[in-house]
């Protein structure tokens, strides 16, 4: 079963980085989860604040706006897609992820499996 782990930073420092996250913690975690053989995909966003939103209206006109951050305190910093037997295992990885600490959070969502359809 595949799960998406969305890593949200809790608080941003003045330069737009996540507070309380050390690069060594991330490297250690990434090594552990990669060596466990469960990672399907993973990316870290270039920074926490650069985002451009595109919406197309019914008349086909395109609206481009600067990121969706005004109304949300948590900002997406990266993600993992992992393939593990069940939700409890996915939650364990989420809890090990440094992104779940220091006011941040990891949101775990199951990924649809259309193989049997």
């Amino acid at each position: 079963m595949k799960y998406l782990l969305l890593i949200n930073a809790g608080e941003l420092d003045p330069s737009g980085g996540a507070v309380g996250c050390e690069p060594e913690d991330w490297m250690r975690f990434d090594k552990e989860i990669t060596e466990a053989g469960v990672v399907v995909a993973s990316e870290s966003l270039a920074d926490l604040v650069t985002a451009t939103r595109v919406q197309v209206a019914n008349d086909g006109s395109r609206t481009v706006t600067d990121g969706p951050f005004a109304e949300t305190r948590e900002v997406l910093g990266g993600f993992y897609v992992i393939d593990v037997p069940d939700l409890d295992v996915a939650l364990d990885w989420a809890a090990k992820c440094p992104g779940s600490r220091a006011g941040g959070s990891v949101v775990v969502r199951p990924i649809a499996d259309f193989a049997g359809a």
Partner: peptide, 10 residues
Amino acid sequence: RDARIPFRVP
């Protein structure tokens, strides 16, 4: 079923 919450004792 969808999130595959397991039937297991922690």
